[in-house]
Nucleic acid binder design. Structure first.
Ligand SMILES: [Mn+2]
Ligand SMILES: [Mn+2]
Ligand SMILES: [Zn+2]
Ligand SMILES: [Zn+2]
Lengths: 140, 140
DNA sequence: CTCGTAATGCAAAAGATTCTCATCTCTCTT
DNA sequence: AAGAGAGATGAGAATCTTTTGCATTACGAG
């Protein structure tokens, strides 16, 4: 159960934390901003402050429960960590996000970092493009 | 001369634009924030407003004269466009930025976008790590 | 159940970027 | 060279996202 995840992170099991984790587990779409989480909670009737949402998401990130991404647009998005790393493709027209993992790219990145005398700690790869979804605006 | 670049972009050749472009051409480091540009101009005795710096950088970006990057940290950085695309490695300890271009990765990205039904428009690849610079803090 | 500490909510603060608007200044035209 | 008009600038207000301060509340160890 979620409570164990929270406890394991050294955090008290409080209602806001449980609700936020539950929401992320059931969230569609998977990638949501702090504001999104806040509004979704309001719609569910949970009165949780926006500041708390930001605080909890940051704590969950530090605990490895969620991952934060800086897509274009000025606000960060979060997603539940499922253990396996992946990168993203974002549609610049409709915002649709798809995920992928490419062993070749992952490997080259490590090599490149090493070639430059860096010890790779993390990386962010985002492909921006136009999707072929029929409901995507801008389809000519 | 710079004036042609500016004119070619359909912009009037004004003192702020010329000074900002000159500064970017001579800038060390190469990757600077709007605030950086503003302060560097002040130090040179140029009284150019911060709002103008933001406006001009955005216009230069639209004109393809500069490229904007969203490194971690909440503020965008700009660099003069030199015609050839490249990606970045950023040191999480000292902020040092190195550039690289890897044909294998570039190729795979296009393929991946296509596999997902996306027409790639752009991409952002940033490797975060710890550099081996002797002046980098955090060297243990 | 009781207490002490950690967590929460609200509002204020911060940091980055954009916008408003009155005032300038390029450019093009006489 | 002088004038007109569109476009650009500067200062500050406004936005937007995220963080903080602080008084109040709620976990959870004992
Ligand atoms: Mn994802
Ligand atoms: Mn660069
Ligand atoms: Zn789309
Ligand atoms: Zn470093």
């Amino acid at each position: 159960m979620d409570n164990q995840e929270i406890r394991k992170a050294g955090l008290k099991v409080t209602l806001p934390r449980v609700k936020i984790l539950e929401l992320l587990e059931a969230s569609v779409p998977r990638h949501v901003s702090a504001e999104d989480v806040y509004k979704m909670l309001l719609e569910k009737g949970e009165e949780i402050g926006l500041a708390t949402v930001y605080r909890v998401l940051t704590q969950f990130e530090a605990a490895g429960l969620v991952t934060r991404h800086n897509f274009e647009g000025g606000h960060a998005v979060f997603e539940l960590d499922r253990g396996e790393h992946h990168d993203h493709i974002v549609c610049v027209l409709c915002g649709k996000v798809e995920e992928f993992m490419d062993a070749t790219i992952e490997e080259r990145q490590k090599e490149i970092a090493a070639e430059h005398g860096f010890e790779m700690e993390d990386h962010s790869l985002i492909i921006y493009g136009r999707c072929n979804n029929s409901s995507c605006p801008g389809r000519e």
